[in-house]
Design a protein around this nucleic acid. Structure first.
Lengths: 323, 323
DNA sequence: ATAATGTATGAAATGCGTTTCAGAGCAAGT
DNA sequence: ACTTGCTCTGAAACGCATTTCATACATTAT
């Protein structure tokens, strides 16, 4: 492999000058610039980026910790991150964790070893304290309320978003409300549960553990949910569903089982993916791509704003009946 | 930042010895190993991976060129790649191209600059000759019939897969057959079109340009397809649909429009995602995760097998009517 | 007893580009 | 005429770990 020194020799200049040409520094005469360019061309020289990384101490690589890519919620965020990364000439390195702690630590370690300049954690399994510890090695942004804990965050207030959905249902006369969620653990899930419990308490309704349907991630999970729903002795009149996909699955299965949406079961979903408009689902729009964009922005600029909250809004369509 | 030299000094050994400890080389006495480990611990030393990359000339990073992540076909492949990468201790760097040629070239350039050890191209826009040219810099595998052109490939024979679907329909008495596809261009699409044209010719049927529905990527695109279908003067009796998602969308829209699936419109989809089983779609199973796994394998091992063809199989369910 | 192996260790070279510093040449400012 | 201040250039240091080579000692084989 030819290197910068070979080029310098061949062009009859110093390596410094070649480096200047390579980096578009001013203070290179047109004459020498041409000589260098010619030598580069002739020798088919190509920079060894790893040497650049070593000397500069940065890689223009950003790590993204994500539990799975195969899920619209996360792939929307990832999409936002990726588009913004491209604009800023950064590349992404993917850590698909499946919520495996070791994988998360691995990502953090890469920050320490300087393989990545910064890290975006879309969903975490590890403790705040660990993340804080690693923050000395580079910017970290978490996609979750950081609570001024010292770690930057760009997040949706899932408590309020859930509350908004619940209040909407309550205002429409619903009291018997359940919800569907991916996992029960994790900060976002806890916030939603809190909103749920608080609302039930406010309207003086008892908690039905079996109205909380978990492990609902994909469109096909809608089937399970509806089956469980059908076997309930007491049924809720409304369901908050944390993803449009699952809601779509519920709609399909309800249609099979001749359960009329809205009439027999009201639904509010989350995300506002195109499918929710298509199905006329009342949904809570979450600006996921935008959040991805902000996540990347937060990691890039040394903005002192540590906690950036994203807005959400309820979009009324046709899946909620007024009782 | 403390470096290997600082550690060596502090431990009272040479940098070579520290390097040996770091890399678990034999020929280090237990006594010195302990000294080194202690110094590393005390000084909070962490290796600078970029220096390793520079000296070793490899990064354990594999590039993945993919048009979009937000699509089940590609995210399934990516999933397969990611899982296998993890097993082999490789990381992935993502090039979401949106079929933008420049982005593809950028990925190839990173191979040349040694930022990545090898490259997996899930769908390409650029010419074979360009890819071949870059192959001198590292292994490249393309997810498409390489036709012994010198570039490694792991692929599905989309001509045969499409043919299998078409033959199934023909055997069930269908003659008026259309299809749905993402884009019309690209090798895979051309192969499918060829299979389509060949089949029509064999059964002596004319080609209806308006029975070819393109720009069908997602579940919501099913709506457009069905609209176009309904406005046809002459309608096909069956549709081959290149993705389960689009097929699901078609089913939903047909249900709205009271078009009976199978009875009025037979459908064979592709991929065999869970949703197709749920909807009882006759589908052609494509081993996408497995293909991802093989793609990574192909890029890793210097196996001389250049073209690896993946099997597919038709799964009969309930979306095809026998005429 | 002597040659041949194996174990253990470190100095120095290597991979390669960037950056600092010093210096030369030349034009503008006083 | 003399100081400033650019523009341009290159030598050398720097970032950091790996690898080669040489050396020393301890075993084992002949």
């Amino acid at each position: 492999m030819t290197n910068i020194r070979d080029v310098a020799k061949s062009a009859g200049v110093s390596v410094t000058t070649v480096s200047r040409v390579l980096n578009n520094h001013p203070y290179v005469s047109e004459e020498k610039r041409k000589l260098v360019l010619k030598a580069i061309e002739e020798m088919k020289y190509h920079i060894n980026i790893n040497a650049v990384h070593l000397t500069k101490g940065v890689t223009k690589l950003i790590g993204v910790v994500i539990p799975f890519i195969n899920h619209p919620y996360f792939s929307s965020i990832l999409d936002g991150i990726a588009n913004e990364a491209r604009k800023n000439d950064y590349k992404l390195i993917l850590f698909q964790t499946d919520y495996d702690l070791d994988k998360e630590i691995e990502a953090l370690e890469m920050l320490r070893m300087k393989q990545i300049d910064s890290l975006i954690i879309c969903s975490r399994e590890c403790k705040w304290s660990i993340i804080e510890e690693y923050e000395t090695y580079g910017p970290i942004v978490v996609c979750e309320d950081g609570e001024n804990l010292g770690v930057k965050s760009v997040y949706i207030d899932h408590y309020q978003a859930f509350k908004t959905g619940l209040d909407h249902l309550v205002n429409r006369g619903h009291k018997r409300i359940g919800y569907c969620i991916g996992r029960r653990t994790g900060k976002n899930s806890e916030q939603r549960e809190a909103a749920y419990l608080d609302t039930l308490e406010k309207i003086d309704e008892p908690v039905h553990e079996d109205w909380i349907f978990d492990q609902a991630y994909t469109i096909v999970d809608g089937e399970k949910v509806v089956h469980r729903f059908m076997h309930l002795v007491e049924r809720p009149t409304a369901l908050l569903v944390t993803s449009d996909q699952v809601a779509a699955g519920i709609l399909m299965q309800c249609s099979k089982e001749h359960i009329r949406i809205a009439d027999e079961l009201s639904i509010i979903s989350f995300d506002n993916h195109p499918i929710s408009e298509y199905l006329q689902l009342t949904t809570i729009d979450l600006p996921l791509e935008q959040m991805g964009k902000e996540l990347l922005g937060a990691v890039l600029k040394p903005d002192p704003v540590r906690n950036r909250q994203m807005p959400f809004r309820l979009i009324e369509r046709k899946s909620v009946k007024t009782l």
